[in-house]
Write a protein that binds this DNA or RNA. Structure first.
Lengths: 193, 193
DNA sequence: TGTTTTTCTTGACTTTAGTCAAGTGTTTCT
DNA sequence: AGAAACACTTGACTAAAGTCAAGAAAAACA
């Protein structure tokens, strides 16, 4: 993983570890590839891997009786796993599907956890990462409670323009908590103004 | 804080630290009291404290043009702060208001952070705490996207019965993303069946 | 305890979003 | 290039939730 042009920039995003630690961390990962439409994590199963998505993106969705509802998006380059099922030792609540052929590194989460616990600096890294994630989710909860669908759409455009550019409308609609038809009409209204 | 009958049970909930560490941690806190309706954290300001709420409960709400929208509830005994504003160094997005006269301990978050970084075991404690919080928020996001208001209400009754028992309907309604009138009707429908 | 204030319920009505279905446009794949 | 699959848009209609207002109920307070 040390060869990946994205490893260092992503790694340094939350907190800068000494070079030696970065290398030790990188050694936990194995290179791999995954094809579009494949599931990286399956709803109902258990995860024990941490992934580093180098290219491509994926969606997390929930299977209900009659349809798949997209709840989250993950864009490379980024570290990724189902933290909920890992930390709570419960089956995954969502499936995660690749939306492009992608290069992906994976590591045993157990090894990652040991690494993160082994030194205060490493822990600090993981703590920053978790705090960030937390902030992200809480903001989303607040937006779901306080904003209208149109306001949520505008915020998404502002905060994560890639989502709007690259992903199909139906996925974005569910992510925002509305039907595809409603999002189509929101877009129309915005264009007309 | 070592005298508090709740300190140890809450502390041990996520991960059991050695007695010595627990005591060291407890020493960071100072006892205090706060009255019903007072704000512990104010929207737009910065926080630098970690609280241990020994009794009572509070609500987090957002001020919009014409009303206050309740977004979260916190029940004693529990550790509490505005992690988002602390970790992102941004002004608080929500105000947190006491709903009862309460006993509350507070510590400088800087001290807490040093403590948590000082030993792998301490970090592990904080990490478990954050992972838990994450799971909680993610589940709420999924519920906001996938469930109907009635389903969200039933889940809340199951997962956090105290919220239903102790808090006014208007707060619960906003928490679930509906108006008080709508929640009142949901309750009626459920009673009639 | 009685008064005041706040919260909850209900009805009538409006607005918003969901559903269904048909038709158009776009990708994808061979 | 052409066929098939998929994704998006639009209209007509239905269902759900929001708004407003009035009155009942409950809680707070003096």
């Amino acid at each position: 993983m040390l060869d990946s042009p994205f490893f260092r920039p992503v790694m340094d995003y939350y907190y800068v570890l000494p070079e030696e630690e970065k290398q030790e961390f990188a050694k936990l990962f194995q290179e791999g590839f995954i094809r579009k439409k494949e599931l990286l994590i399956k709803q109902g199963e258990y995860t024990d891997q941490l992934f580093f998505l180098e290219s491509g993106h994926l969606r997390g969705f929930k299977n209900t009786e009659n349809q798949e509802i997209t709840v989250s998006f993950v864009f490379a380059p980024v570290f990724f796993t189902d933290l909920v099922s890992l930390s709570q030792k419960t089956p995954a609540e969502l499936s995660f599907q690749m939306l492009e052929d992608s290069k992906i590194y994976s590591a045993s989460f157990k090894d990652v956890d040991s690494f993160m616990s082994s030194k205060p600096e490493n822990s600090r890294y993981y703590i920053r990462f978790l705090e960030n994630l937390n902030a992200f989710y809480l903001k989303r909860v607040i937006s779901m409670v306080c904003d209208t669908p149109e306001e949520r759409y505008l915020k998404l455009m502002k905060d994560r323009p890639k989502v709007i550019e690259k992903l199909p409308l139906q996925y974005i609609a569910h992510y925002l908590g509305v039907t595809p038809e409603t999002l189509s009409r929101i877009r129309r209204r915005l264009k007309d103004c």
